[in-house]
Design a protein around this nucleic acid. Structure first.
Lengths: 192, 192
DNA sequence: GTCTATACCCCGATAGAC
DNA sequence: GTCTATCGGGGTATAGAC
């Protein structure tokens, strides 16, 4: 709803420590019990304070969860961006797919946090924020006569989500191999 | 958790009418307000009875929502199965994609109900129930040297979900065109 | 067999004391 | 900055009216 009221630099030291502590507790709890199973009381308990104290540092439960979501998303976006920029444009889509699936495989708790956040209405994230960067990467990879890049980006994102979700339910599922298969599918399409 | 205790035929007339009424009310409410925004009190209010009366017909709120979810899913599965069986095996994947996206476009309320159910823990649906039938359709479509069919099925399902979700956020999005693009992608892959 | 009334406990949030 | 107290509302369980 509203932007961050104060800049990070204006926060007290203890304030920043508390926020970080609460965010970490929230990421763990959402990973373990999902959004609905994560109550203010549990977050407070894990941080050693009371419900009301949590609501002193954040205006609402949704704000806590949103902060935790952003924390985790920032790390993901940074890693994917680095990987894509390090690749030559033609391999951008492959770098995007591999780094995103790889990051989520290495941070399963973050994964649950992100998937939970996508569904709960806090996800006022315009879906465009998800597909537009990928569509640009696809465009930079070269001319593509056949596909609408928005739809292709949406399909790829959905495929990534489904692969990652599959591993959540079946830890033995080989997401690296799945990533390679998705990469092959996309590169075939881009050169068709 | 447990199977249906009594067969449909053993239910009272009023019981069946009430269940249907409650399921319809729940589908509408979940479509309008999401799972979290759908309370027993609202379901009861829309049906003209009290919370406790709802819990006479169903053992819990989750059971009501699960019944509503199954109701909607049954219609989807039936339509898709009919379309796939009517197609020659080689066009099975195309029929699957087109009929599923088409059905969800024509029943937006069902769509919200299904996507909400997928995330909330009531989704004890082994994901295998989703990808295995599609993997069989892919297998029946012909020999496929390159792709692991489980992963291909997972990617296709994710793509379908993402396309349908996109339309929920942007009603102007052309899901029919997106379906054709996904069909083309899959058929290219299957003939590679 | 169908339903109402009631009561319980947990949740998110607010007010105000320390 | 953190607490207790309290509120409205949620899901659930039971007693008992009809």
């Amino acid at each position: 709803m509203s932007r961050r009221e104060r800049a990070e630099s204006e926060l007290t030291l203890t304030e920043r420590a508390r926020r970080r502590q609460l965010i970490e507790a929230t990421v763990e709890l959402v990973a373990e019990h999902g959004y609905a199973g994560t109550s203010l009381a549990r977050i407070a308990e894990r941080a050693g304070i009371t419900k009301a104290a949590v609501l002193y540092h954040f205006p609402s439960k949704d704000a806590v969860v949103r902060a935790a979501h952003e924390h985790v998303l920032t790390a993901l976006v940074a890693e994917v961006a680095t990987a894509v920029e390090a690749a030559e444009p033609a391999r951008g889509p492959a770098a995007y797919i591999r780094s995103m699936i790889g990051h989520l495989r290495e941070h399963p708790r973050h994964t649950r946090m992100i998937t939970e956040a996508m569904t709960n209405d806090a996800a006022k994230h315009e879906s465009a924020e998800r597909w537009r960067p990928l569509a640009q990467i696809l465009e930079a990879a070269g001319p593509n006569p056949r596909a609408d890049l928005r739809t292709l980006a949406i399909i790829i994102s959905g495929g990534i989500d489904a692969i990652v979700a599959e591993q959540l339910g079946d830890p033995a599922y080989d997401t690296a191999a799945a990533a390679e298969q998705l990469v092959a599918l996309v590169e075939t399409e881009l050169s068709s």
